[in-house]
Design a binder for these strands. Sequence first.
DNA 1: GTGAAAGCGCTAACAC
DNA 2: GTGTTAGCGCTTTCAC
Lengths: 338, 338
Amino acid sequence: MQDVARAAGVSPMTVSNVVNNRPHVREATRVKVLEAMDRLGYRVNIAARNLRAGRTQTIGLAVPEMDRPYFAELAARIVRHARAAGYRVVVEQTGALREEELDAIAWSRNSLYDGLILSTVALGPDDRDLLRVDFPVVILGERIFDAPVDHVAMPNTDGARAATAHLIGRGCRRIAMVTGPDLEGTNVASLRYAGYRDALRAAELPHDERLVVRLPRLDPASGAEAAARLARAEPGWDGVVAVTDTVALGVVRGVTDAGLRVPGDVRVVGFDNIEAGRFAVPSLTTVDPDNDWIAARAVGLLVGRIRGDATQGRPRDVVSPFGLIERESTGRGRGPAV
Amino acid sequence: MQDVARAAGVSPMTVSNVVNNRPHVREATRVKVLEAMDRLGYRVNIAARNLRAGRTQTIGLAVPEMDRPYFAELAARIVRHARAAGYRVVVEQTGALREEELDAIAWSRNSLYDGLILSTVALGPDDRDLLRVDFPVVILGERIFDAPVDHVAMPNTDGARAATAHLIGRGCRRIAMVTGPDLEGTNVASLRYAGYRDALRAAELPHDERLVVRLPRLDPASGAEAAARLARAEPGWDGVVAVTDTVALGVVRGVTDAGLRVPGDVRVVGFDNIEAGRFAVPSLTTVDPDNDWIAARAVGLLVGRIRGDATQGRPRDVVSPFGLIERESTGRGRGPAV
DNA sequence: GTGAAAGCGCTAACAC
DNA sequence: GTGTTAGCGCTTTCAC
């Protein structure tokens, strides 16, 4: 900038004014400066500007794995909403590791972002003290009760209850739940599992441990394996509630591999409403947690904290509305086109 | 840092030495400083460090849309390789807009990143002069010939040729190509289309314009529509080469909706080898462009430029090796499990 | 309408 | 082993 100023015969301050489109710069001066900038191939140094300004107009988004369709789609929505609010978004991957999720918070406070949206899967209530930071943070995903930060929660239990009830309404009586590893803590797997049990209880259906499959990883391969295991060991099963759509699509695959039909023999319902489920064969019935609502709300809360005082005001805890989207995977028994 | 220094009764320099784990700091001093840091809740200001250092140990990755599975999976791989090389990755979305792709370059030069991996879809040979920057950039995707930056290209034409030849080998004679809008420029759609035509020519099959569908957007919905249109207008078609797996999955859906079977009536082959294709029903035959090779190479080239001189050395132009992964969608006529 | 001075928080280079 | 000096590139403040 010094160089440009010298080349244009003005002060650095004037160059700064031109760069930032500030008024009160004479047209002739502006032109001179722009020419000099062009000639020297000048670019503002954002790092310096950030240092000076103390903010970056950038928000960080930390997700467990950005190649999981749910997070990829959510990230895209968050980018859209944040951009509308005048913020850039920077996406980072935590690998679903507790250490890295905490790291994301620590790093964010290092003045690179004005705030952080953290999609937790590995943090639990025990970590609530570590979230006691005076930096704008919004937690996405499960609720960590009493944590001093804003939360946007998914309707995990209610949604899973509705999904299970839907299967029961379709006539299923031996409904399996394919879920995550940890059913004790407060996490997506356990909360959705709770909804599943609620619905069974409400319908006075017995709970059968053998129908609960705990997957170490929530991916299609694991879902397919779960279906294979169920097909081998539980011949009478007629429905599956999968903890996520990604897992559900794997389950459908596994059911098919076992020589059974979806929904003819086994009905399958997922959770998340990812795009792939809409176009799968059969298309996937799913709980739609209103991801756009979630993205909008997360950005809204974070930007509010950034603009106001980070620590001021009690933490908000909101849950998105949900709907059940009925598609072929729980349909009237018509399987994939004969 | 000043505050910490004062609280610990040392100079800022010593604090800096402690923060950066530098040797030659007496243990007692180190402890004193760490205590002061803890007491004051001190965090390094990375913005300041970056300004001072002139580099950020961060590379930017600009993709058209991060919710397209291909890019999401590629981003995850790039993150992994970059981390192994000691760099953080920041992902941004360009929306597949020419302006935003150019913006990504412009922004990157603003000292936020040490280098940029740009996945282009909207830039063409005409933009080559705009890429003439003395900043480490690696272009991913189609080749922009003569551009003065490193390229990691996909085996677009060769892969599509192999995919088409595979269908021909399976007995298909009226093979449709479902591709992108622009078949004139140098882009994924046109290059893969060229491979399709090559294979038809080599097999002495006629080229039929009516079998070429140009989609405005490369998503499953468009793929499904394309299949519907083909089913309506071209009853004799027996194969589809889809420009991407995402489109191919939509095509499979559309074929099924039209009351036809995959692969019984129509065989479908995609391109990209995304995870969803492996678990789809039927599973998707696809061209595997070795995405891990691409990610590793892109990171490798970029880091090389960053560590060496950005402009030094002729631009490298590499093409990943590919393979054809044969799955059910082009199988022996056995459709989805009966 | 333009400029001079000062400082954001950090660290390389050198002095002690 | 620790401190001093200086400056990365920008912008806020206030003077002209």
